[in-house]
């Protein structure tokens, strides 16, 4: 399968298999006016299978979203057909309006205009807790 290489843009690599669409939706990539390719279940020596997203435009993306969904992802920045920067994302310390608290007793269940804020409380186990009620994110 051939997917055109990009001239100026971003390649999000090393996404766990089946997580590509989740990142695509969370980053709202469907709203872009450029080409976006999602490759799912690509063969990977390191991961077995992986997903890759290619965005044919140098846009500002929310790293916290990617780090939260796939902390092992790699970001590649391409300029004039050349790879100019490559880095790994990190598990964000705090995420805002990426996930929703499921605790019916949380104040966010009453007051919908509040930001949904989660804090990373256990890096090893990747546990986030709601800033307001401290319920862990499932």
């Amino acid at each position: 399968m051939n997917i055109d290489s990009i001239k100026n843009g971003i390649v999000i690599d090393h996404i766990g298999a089946k997580k590509g669409m989740q990142i695509y939706e969370a980053l709202k990539l469907k709203d872009l006016d450029c080409s976006v390719a999602i490759i799912t279940n690509a063969k990977s020596k390191k991961m077995g299978r992986k997903d890759i997203i290619k965005i044919d435009k140098d846009i500002k993306i929310n790293m916290d979203v990617i780090g939260f969904i796939e902390p092992n992802a790699t970001i590649n920045i391409v300029k004039d057909d050349k790879l100019v920067n490559k880095y790994k994302v990190n598990l964000p310390e705090k995420i805002v309006n990426i996930a929703k608290c499921q605790n019916p007793r949380c104040i966010t269940s009453n007051e919908k205009e509040l930001d949904q804020v989660f804090i990373l409380t256990d890096k090893e186990k990747q546990i986030y807790r709601c800033q307001y009620c401290e319920m862990s994110l499932k």
Binding site: R105, Y132, C133
Partner: peptide
């Protein structure tokens, strides 16, 4: 005091005077 968990924290983010949580649900 508020039945919803986290309500006093919300209050503290907007308050110009000190807030004491007198109990927020089971939290």
């Amino acid at each position: 005091r508020h039945p919803k968990e986290g309500a006093p924290l919300v209050a503290s983010l907007k308050s110009v005077v000190p807030i004491i949580n007198a109990g927020d649900g089971g939290h």
